[in-house]
């Protein structure tokens, strides 16, 4: 249980796939125009990540290592197609607003990276937890960026008006705003991380002195 909590914290914060490992930039920039879209994209990728991690972990002794990348891509694209069809059936407006980025989950480097780095070496249950925590970390990062962009760009959050319309700056909804917002969010994360690292080093020094 302790192990699982550690994995969850790792995926959400310490090794966040977007904000720390800097993977999966295309959907992070493209689908964060509103919190709804970001949440939909994040959860769709999480579902694919859990399923593909479980499947690859189950098959890890059967897949020859020379063709493993091709095998992973086939497994991942199978699950992506399933998620795409499910979303078209049950969440049609979301399916339309995410557009091509649902099939493009196939080439999202986070999923292939977790398959290669974790699921191919670990048992089924830890792999599923790894998929869940990395997927939630991805979702968290998307929602963070989308909150800034939707609030400043349209003055709304999940469609509910927060700021008066006169204050909304279209810049943040445009593609250029996506790059700039993500740049500032990652800068803030780096600032926090260096602050924490410094604090930890100070604490450590204190212990040595005592």
């Amino acid at each position: 249980m302790k192990q699982f909590i550690k994995q969850l914290k790792n995926g959400l914060i310490d090794q966040n796939p977007v904000l720390v490992q800097l993977l999966g930039m295309c959907p992070t920039l493209a689908t964060t125009t509103s919190v709804d879209n970001a949440l939909g994209m994040g959860l769709a990728a999480t579902a694919v990540l859990i399923c593909s991690n479980v499947m690859i972990s189950l098959l890890r002794k059967l897949i020859p290592s020379q063709v493993r990348i091709a095998a992973y891509i086939v497994i991942i694209s199978g699950f992506v197609t399933a998620v795409e069809l499910l979303m078209r059936a049950y969440f049609y407006p979301l399916y339309q607003s995410l557009g091509l980025f649902i099939p493009l989950i196939v080439v999202n480097c986070i999923i292939l990276a977790r398959a290669e780095a974790f699921a191919s070496k670990n048992r089924v249950l830890p792999s599923a937890v790894d998929g869940l925590s990395m997927g939630l970390g991805f979702t968290l990062a998307l929602v963070l960026v989308a909150t800034v962009r939707e609030l400043l760009g349209m003055g709304t959050l999940m469609g509910v008006r927060i700021l008066p319309e006169a204050l909304s700056m279209t810049f943040f909804i445009l593609p250029c705003g996506a790059f700039v917002t993500l740049g500032f969010v990652i800068a803030a994360v780096q600032k926090l991380r260096s602050h924490r690292a410094k604090k930890a080093a100070d604490d450590h020094d204190g212990e040595v002195d005592a």
Binding site: L22, L174, P175, C176, G177, A178, F179, V180, L182, G183, F184, I186, A187, A188, Q190, K191, S194
Partner: peptide, 18 residues
């Protein structure tokens, strides 16, 4: 500034180009 070094600066430059 130190926290903007590397990736964030690159992203903001890309934003200006966009």
């Amino acid at each position: 500034p130190k926290s903007f070094e590397g990736f964030p600066l690159t992203l903001i430059a890309a934003g200006l180009l966009a």
